[in-house]
C-alpha cells in the first residue's frame, strides 16, 4: 500500500474534465487506486466516483494504491492533480 497527500490546486476543483484526466491516468495501471477527500473515498478508475467527490479547490486529497505497480500509480495520479489540470490556480 502506497499513499500520497496532495492539495487540489485549481480554482474550480475536480469537476468533469479534471475527473476525466484523473481516471484516464488511473486506468493505465493494474493496481487498485483510490482518491480520498475528507468526505469520501472512491475508486480512481470510476469517473462517477471521482466526480461525486466534488473536491473543490484547496481540498486535501489522499491518493492511495495497492498492487504491483502501486508506487508509479500513486505518483501518476498525484501528479495529474498537482498539475492543476491546466486551469486557473487558486
Amino acid at each position: 500500500m502506497t499513499e500520497k497527500k496532495v492539495v487540489v490546486p485549481n480554482k474550480l476543483g475536480i469537476h468533469a474534465r479534471p475527473a476525466a484526466l484523473i481516471v484516464r491516468a488511473a486506468v493505465e495501471f493494474a493496481c487498485d487506486i483510490w482518491v480520498e477527500s475528507p468526505a469520501d473515498k472512491v475508486n480512481a478508475k470510476s469517473i462517477m466516483g471521482v466526480m461525486t467527490l466534488a473536491a473543490s479547490g484547496g481540498t486535501e486529497i489522499v491518493v492511495s494504491a495497492d498492487g504491483s505497480d502501486e508506487v508509479e500509480a500513486v505518483e501518476a495520479v498525484a501528479e495529474v492533480i498537482r498539475s492543476g489540470f491546466g486551469e486557473e490556480m487558486i
Binding site: A16, R17, A20, N43, K45, I47, M48, G49
Partner: peptide, 14 residues
Amino acid sequence: QILEFLLLLLQDPT
C-alpha cells in the same frame, strides 16, 4: 473531449 467523457462514463467500473 465530451465524447471521451461519455466513453469513460460508459466504462465506469463502479
